[in-house]
Design a protein around this nucleic acid. Structure first.
Length: 580
DNA sequence: GCCTCGTTCC
């Protein structure tokens, strides 16, 4: 093998290049990739793609020697695991077993890590059993992997047992895995004792304990340890920043982010997703623009930011940029779930069909999260058959997927079906949340079942869900549609929190429906106080005046609208003018 | 071995 080829292999970062190099190898009458080069190729392949995996698998099929197969399958499983594709890694491990290839230590440790990450004790136990059978349990890495598995799953006694079995060979990674176990099971004092006993604490030992405090929201302890640690890695900074993000302390998060010497992609994503949760799209955008080398996850974070903050057009725009940029970023089920959510907000069902064909064309695995967003899309668009099929095929139905079904029924006025899903989730002990009740209430509202609506509203406390202003809004909408405006107004006055524009808007809408000037005026006054854009509300009020023949009042409201519109336009042009 | 991304509502 000449040195230039070797160099190319080392540098091959994408599948296309891998294929080209492989083609050259074939020309040079190497009929397969040498396993060691396969290992190196995968090591340098930055992006995980199912294309690479299926390509490598094809090569593997050609291997005859069992030693070579064991080694190469190990590389592949590890490749998947290292790219955080844990389900795929497990799938590959099982496939490897089914082909009769004995596992290597690489394959086993990666599989154990994957089991821990997807929190599957069943798979973990069978890998453990295999470890014992194949005689790999003398290997420190494998034993440490077992400690890590049981630690992550919260079986601290099992973890301790596996740890003790390592004996003298234990290293810092083994200690850290045990520390992780005590932290994960909440035994902080024991964790502290383990931490103090670690003979050579490394940066991960510190990071684990800091991360534990940060997850609990104990930022003063997290920060104290962060400042005390001798050497900080990027992960240390990211943990601290992430901790502040979780506590909604975006200013503090930003302070440490700005102070961080070498920000990596994780740092940027942590900040962007923090701004996403706090609804600060402008700051998220600003960071996104500043990033020089954007990877797929950063795009994902920004698309999600738009989708979650009511900017579906921007989400789709960025998604198409992502496709066009030719930077090798391939959207996957994570990207698509945000994209589907965005199209659902736009009410564009046709997009679902596009996504489904994209999924089949690119061999993307449709997981429960992507299914859930498709369910939401199809339910809203009235394509119940498709939604039901996806819902039935879910691996695990949860609060979110049930809520998507109930909400879809609600929007389409299918009160009976909404209630059926609700009863079903209660039977399965899946806890309803605020969204579930919004869906249920709107089902009763749209179908005019006032009595059931009241019952449902009252039952929220039983299910430990505090009614929000939005729930009151749906109730007002329901009573208003039924013509019970007085009752709706009384409900608003009884609200424990400040009524928002949605609540008053519902009353205004109902007043319009029943040509009621009295409540229309009250509702409109509050809406105007709460929202900056008045034109919609005022025009509603004007229509109410018109419908009862109060032309003069209608005219004066319209005049007020016109005046505001003009003042706004003039204001804007003056501001713009001052920029020049 | 530690840190980052996604689904339901407005």
């Amino acid at each position: 093998m000449d040195s230039r080829l070797r160099f190319l292999l080392h540098k091959s970062l994408a599948l296309q290049q891998t294929k080209q190099v492989h083609a050259q190898l074939l020309i040079n009458r190497h009929n397969h990739l040498e396993p060691i080069l396969l290992h190196q190729t995968l090591h340098f392949t930055k992006d995980f793609s199912r294309d690479v995996v299926s390509y490598i698998k094809r090569i593997l099929k050609g291997f005859q020697s069992s030693k070579v197969s064991t080694f190469s399958w190990g590389c592949l499983v590890r490749f998947s695991s290292q790219h955080r594709k844990f389900k795929e890694a497990l799938g590959l491990y099982i496939e490897m077993n089914n082909s009769g290839v004995p596992p290597s230590s690489h394959a086993v440790t990666s599989a154990l890590r994957a089991c821990g990450k997807v929190e599957s004790l069943i798979d973990g136990n069978s890998v453990h059993a295999q470890v014992v059978k194949s005689g790999l349990c003398g290997c420190v890495y494998v034993q440490t992997g077992l400690v890590g598995l049981y630690s992550r799953l919260g079986y601290i006694q099992m973890a301790k047992k596996a740890f003790d079995e390592i004996g003298e060979k234990k290293n810092t990674v083994s200690w850290n895995s045990l520390l992780h176990g005590y932290l994960e099971s909440g035994e902080l004092e024991e964790a502290r004792r383990v931490f103090d006993k670690i003979p050579e604490k490394d940066v991960v030992s510190w990071n684990l304990i800091i991360s534990s405090y940060a997850k609990r929201g104990d930022m003063s302890n997290a920060r104290a340890l962060f400042l005390a640690m001798p050497l900080k890695s990027s992960a240390s900074w990211n943990i601290l920043i992430g901790g502040y993000v979780n506590c909604d302390e975006m200013e503090l998060a930003r302070t440490y982010f700005d102070a961080m010497p070498q920000k990596n992609s994780v740092s940027w994503i942590t900040m962007i997703s923090g701004y996403t949760k706090s609804g600060d799209v402008v700051s998220a955008e600003e960071l996104f623009r500043q990033m020089s080398k954007k990877d797929k996850l950063v795009y994902d974070a920004m698309v999600a930011c738009y989708a979650q903050n009511g900017k579906p057009e921007d989400a789709l725009k960025l998604f198409s940029q992502m496709l066009e940029s030719n930077s090798g970023v391939q959207p996957d089920e994570i990207t698509l779930s945000s994209v589907v959510s965005a199209s659902s907000q736009l009410g564009d069902t046709s997009f679902g069909t596009w996504v489904e064909s994209y999924i089949t064309q690119h061999g993307i695995q449709i997981d429960d999260l992507l299914s859930t967003s498709l369910i939401d899309l199809y339910m809203k668009g009235g394509e119940f058959d498709k939604a039901f099929k996806l819902f039935n095929d879910l691996h695990k139905k949860d609060t979110v997927s049930y809520s998507a079904m109930i909400m879809g029924c609600g929007i389409n006025g299918l009160a009976t079906e909404a209630n059926r899903f609700f009863q079903e989730m209660i039977e399965k002990k899946i806890l309803p949340n605020q969204v579930t009740f919004t869906g249920l209430l709107s089902a009763y509202s749209h179908s005019g079942h006032v009595q059931d609506g009241y019952k449902c509203f009252d039952s929220m406390k039983v299910h430990n869900v505090e009614p929000s202003a939005d729930h009151y809004g749906v109730m007002v909408d329901m009573l208003g549609r039924a013509g019970r405006l007085e009752e709706a107004y009384e409900l608003i006055k009884s609200m424990p929190m400040q009524p928002n524009a949605g609540v008053w808007g519902a009353l205004l809408l109902a007043s319009g429906l029943h040509n009621n000037v009295e409540f229309g005026e009250i509702a409109c006054r509050h809406c105007v106080e709460l929202e900056s854009d008045h034109s919609g509300y005022l025009s509603h009020l004007a229509n109410i005046y018109t419908s009862v023949g109060r032309w003069d009042d209608a005219r004066s409201v319209r005049a007020k609208m016109e005046e505001k519109r003009l003042r706004k336009t003039l204001g804007c042009s003056w501001v713009e003018g001052s920029n020049h």
